[in-house]
Design a protein around this nucleic acid. Structure first.
Lengths: 340, 340
DNA sequence: CTGTTAGCGCCTTCAC
DNA sequence: GTGAAGGCGCTAACAG
C-alpha cells in the first residue's frame, strides 16, 4: 500500500506543496480558501505526515532518551511516570534505555542515543561525571539529571540541569523524628559505599542529627547495602546477630527497610514493639507491608515531571528558570515506629 | 558543529559515496584497498551514520513500540525487562508508551506509533480487539501480544502472534494445591469483571478444580477487584465482615493477595494460622511480605523476551515458528499457607 | 500570497 | 569494481 505524501495532498487540493506544507505547519500567509481546501484534502486522503522526512529536514525527532538503572525499582518506575506525563504533554516520545543491560556503563548509552537521534536525554539516578558531560557536549545533546549526584569540578556544576531533593536534610529530618520519639540506639543501613549522592549525603544528615542531639553513634550499627530488599535483609541480620539490638533502624531506601523488617520478624522480634523501622523514598511498597513502614517521601512523580519539562525547554531554546531544582521531602510516620 | 557525512568520508578516502556506502553496509564488490581506506576515513573522522537519513531511504527505523498499562505494576516492569533485553540484543530501540496516560484507549497509541514510525508494536496485557487488529493492518504494522486476551472472531485468532501462560490451568493448579492441603472454604478474589483473559480463565480454572473435588463454592466469597493492592484489601475486608471466615484466600494477583493479607492482619487474625493466602504472578513483592506469600509464578521475563523476539522476526521477515506460545507456570508454596 | 526548487544524508540502480 | 545521479518526503528560501 503506497503511502500518501504531501505532494498527493497538494495535487488533490490543487495547490503547490509549499502551500500545503504551510497549512500543515499552521503558518501564516495562506489564503483562507486554499487553507480549507488543503485541510479537506488531508482529511479525505487520511494523510499522515512522515516524521522521518520531517526530521531529516528539521534535525529534530521529537524523541527524548531516558536512561536509568532498573525500571523494576519502584522508585524509578514511579519517577518515570512523571517523565512520561510531561513528555506526552509536550508531544515528545520516550526512547527508553535501562542500564542493567549495560553493566553500569553510562557512556555507551549516550552514543546510542546520539545515533538514534534523540533530541535530548534525561539521566535518572546516576552520578554525573566529566566523561558524560563531555560526551553530551560533544554530540550537542542537551540533558537533565534527576535524582542524581554531581561528581565534577565545582565550576562546571552550575551548568548542569538537575532535579533532586536535599538528601542531607531529608535524612536529618528523619533521624530527628526518631530522636524526638525517644530513640537513641539507632542503626543505619546505607546504600553502596561509593555512592556519592544519596548514601553520602544521607549519612551526613544522620550524623548531624545525632551529634546535634548529643547521641552516640554505634559504628557497628552503620552498615552498607545496595538499596535492595536483599541487602537490607542481610544488613539487619548482621545487626541482630551482634548481640545487643537497637531500638530503631533507619534504612535509606524503603526496599531495604522492608528487608530489614523481614529479618526482624524472622528473629522473632516485633515491629514496632521491639524495634522501630524507618525507610526512605515513600514508594507504594512501604504501605503494602504490615505494619506500614515509616518513610521519607520523595516527590518522585514531580521529579520526573520537572526533569522532562526542563529538558523540553532546553531543547526548544526556552529559558529554564532554575538550573538546579531542589524539591521538598516529607517525613511520614506510620505504624512501624513507636514512642519510647 | 557541522556533522560529518558519508560524502566527507568518501572524499577523505578518495572514493565515491557509492563505494563508501557499500563498505559501510558491509556489501561485496569493493576492492580490499578501497575498503580499508574507507574504514580508515570513518575512524579518522569519527563518522556516525545518520539514522534518520537511512530510515528515510530504507523505511525502517529500528525502533519498536511497546505499550502497556502502567509500568509501575511490578508484573509489567519485570516483563518489560525481557522485552528490553531482546530488543537490545537485536539492536532495536524501544519507544515506550504507558496507557495510563490515555485512559485505556488502545487505538490512539497505534496511530501515535505509526506516526513516529516504529517498525512494530508489542502490546502487553491488553485485550486484542478487532479495532486494534484493523488499525495495525491498516498501517501495515506487525505486532505481538504478551500476556493478553483475544476478543476477536475465532478465524482471526490464529493470525495473531502472542505469548502467554495457560491461565485456566494455572488457576486450576493453584486451587488444587490448596485443596490438597485440606482447604475447602476458599475465597476467590478476581480481577475486573469484564476482563476477558486472566479473570475469565482463572475463574474457570478455580471452578473446575473445586467441582472436580466436589467442593462447594460459596458465592459470597467470590469477589471482583482491579488487580491492585487496594482492591485486594477491600475485597478481603468485605469477606471478613461477612461473619464466617474462609480457611484460605486465593487472589489472582500478588498485589491483591498482599492487600488481602494486610486486611487479615488488621482484623487481628494470623497468616497462615487462621487464614492461608495464595497469590498469582510471582512478583518480587510476594517475598517482600512477611510471611512470604505463596503464588503462581508466571515467567514474565521470558514472556517479554519471546514477544520481542517474535516481533523482530516478523519485522525482518523471518519465519516465526509458533503463532501462539504458551509458557509454563509454577505453583510456589510458601509460608503463607498451612496444611489443615 | 504562492508555486517552484534546492537540498537534508543516505542507498541504489545505472552505466561505465 | 566503481562513480555519478536520482530520489525517499518534507521544509524553507526564492522568485514571482
Amino acid at each position: 500500500m503506497k503511502s500518501i505524501t504531501l505532494k498527493d495532498v497538494a495535487k488533490k487540493a490543487g495547490v503547490g506543496v509549499g502551500t500545503a506544507s504551510r497549512v500543515l505547519n499552521n503558518q501564516a500567509h495562506v489564503s483562507e480558501d486554499k487553507r480549507e481546501r488543503v485541510l479537506e484534502a488531508i482529511k479525505a486522503l487520511n494523510y499522515q505526515p512522515d516524521a522521518i522526512a520531517r526530521s531529516l529536514k528539521t534535525k529534530s525527532t521529537h524523541n527524548i532518551g531516558v536512561i536509568l538503572n532498573d525500571i523494576t525499582n519502584p522508585f524509578y518506575s514511579e519517577l518515570f511516570r512523571g517523565l512520561e506525563t510531561e513528555a506526552k504533554h509536550s508531544e515528545y516520545s520516550i526512547v527508553f534505555l535501562d542500564l542493567f543491560l549495560q553493566g553500569d556503563n553510562w557512556i555507551d548509552p549516550v552514543l546510542s542515543f546520539y545515533r538514534s537521534k534523540v533530541d535530548g536525554i534525561v539521566f535518572v539516578g546516576s552520578t554525573v561525571t566529566e566523561e558524560i558531560l563531555e560526551a553530551c557536549n560533544n554530540y550537542d545533546l542537551p540533558f537533565v539529571y534527576a535524582s542524581a549526584a554531581l561528581d565534577i569540578p565545582k565550576n562546571s556544576v552550575e551548568a548542569v540541569y538537575s532535579v533532586d531533593i536535599n538528601n542531607e536534610s531529608a535524612a536529618y529530618d528523619a533521624t530527628k523524628s526518631l530522636l524526638e520519639l525517644g530513640h537513641k540506639d539507632i542503626a543505619l543501613i546505607l546504600g553502596s559505599e561509593d555512592d556519592k549522592n544519596s548514601t553520602y549525603f544521607r549519612k551526613i544528615g544522620f550524623e548531624r542529627a545525632m551529634s546535634e542531639n548529643g547521641v552516640f553513634i554505634n559504628e557497628d550499627w552503620v552498615l552498607y547495602g545496595q538499596f535492595s530488599f536483599e541487602s537490607g535483609y542481610d544488613a539487619m541480620k548482621k545487626i541482630l546477630s551482634s548481640g545487643n539490638i537497637p531500638s530503631a533502624v533507619f534504612a535509606i531506601s524503603d526496599l531495604m527497610a522492608i528487608g530489614a523488617a523481614k529479618a526482624i520478624f524472622e528473629a522473632g522480634l516485633r515491629i514496632p514493639d521491639d524495634i522501630s523501622v524507618m525507610g526512605f523514598d515513600g514508594i507504594q511498597n512501604s504501605i503494602y507491608f504490615y505494619p506500614e513502614i515509616s518513610t521519607v517521601k520523595q516527590p518522585r512523580y514531580e521529579m520526573g515531571l520537572l526533569a522532562a519539562r526542563k529538558l523540553v525547554q532546553l531543547i526548544q531554546g526556552i529559558e529554564v528558570e532554575e538550573t538546579q531544582t531542589i524539591l521538598e521531602h516529607e517525613v511520614i510516620l506510620r505504624a512501624s515506629i513507636k514512642r519510647i
